[in-house]
Amino acid sequence: MTHTHQHTHHSNSDHHPDNGHGGHQEPSDRGQAEILDLDAEVLAEHTASITASLPLTSEPRHIVDLGCGTGAGTFTLLERFSDAHVTAVDTSASHLQLLREKAYARGIQERVRTVQADLDNNDWPELGQPDLMWASASMHHMANPDRALRNVRELLAPGGLFAVVELAGVPRFLPAGAPESRPGLEERAHAATNQFHAEHVPHRGADWGPMLTTAGFTVEDERTLTVNIEGARSEAIGRYAYGILQRIRSVAAPALSPEDLAALDELLDTSSPNSLLRREDLAIRTERTVWAARRT
């Protein structure tokens, strides 16, 4: 198993306080879909680099995207593997509808099958026998991840690959000294959500390597990639930061001081000269870890 640390920089590049595809505490499917689409846009090149580095022994023909959301991974995989078709699985009917609309707009609807399913159920729907299964920012939402991993192993074709991609928490956007009125506000807001995440998303930040091994996989690659995307290179980063910090506020507000809450509200006030949408010093800073595990 290799451990690779890469620093990546993207111009327009697929994990809210937590934006995975399990639906935890999101105000609406529509609001979550907006975040997922922005997530896909700002991290597109990064996601493509992950698919290109998977330790595949042959080109996959059938891929299953578990917790597909609005299709960030699905379309990256379809572009990377031109002869493949993807079965996209999610709990949200509206997310799947958006994914289908995107597939039709791109003229690749015949290469996409959508399946609405709750992957916390023990009996999964018929998904065929894929060569590759992909789970980006979705496994940590599973109520019983050990059982889900066993289900994945049973589905995969012999020798097939399972790729688990997880963000190391929620991205950071503001420089250390910002905002000027309350430096360090972003870190305090994140800290205020820790108890919520511990209760509602206990597997966030988990090391999936040992769990994959216990489930009968051979982990062939594990790598952590550093994401550092300058906001000046993409207008979408401001909207992405706004959407995520808006969701963080809904959880963090009771634990923040009145001064911190007022400063956060000013960042989220689109009419304020200090609005996130007007800042030119934003960046996406986070890490993603990728586990590539073989069914042997």
Rank of each mutant, 00 (worst) to 15 (best):
L149C: 05
E154I: 12
R247D: 12
H141Y: 04
A206C: 03
I248P: 04
L167W: 12
D207E: 11
M133N: 02
R233W: 09
V227D: 07
P202H: 02
A252P: 05
G205R: 03
T193F: 03
Y242D: 13
H203V: 00
R153P: 03
D123L: 13
L261K: 00
R147E: 13
G205S: 04
A163T: 14
E126L: 11
S138G: 06
V165Y: 06
T193D: 02
W134K: 03
L156C: 08
T193C: 15
E220Q: 10
P125T: 07
E222H: 15
L132K: 07
W134R: 08
R239W: 13
H200R: 15
F162S: 07
R204I: 09
P171A: 01
A232W: 11
G177A: 05
G184A: 01
H141R: 02
V227S: 05
A143S: 08
H141A: 09
D260P: 00
L167V: 07
L161F: 06
A206N: 08
L212T: 06
A262Q: 13
V170Y: 03
T213Q: 14
S250N: 13
G231W: 05
A262G: 03
R150H: 13
R239V: 09
E235C: 10
R223I: 07
A176L: 09
A198Y: 03
A255D: 11
E199R: 14
H203G: 05
D260I: 00
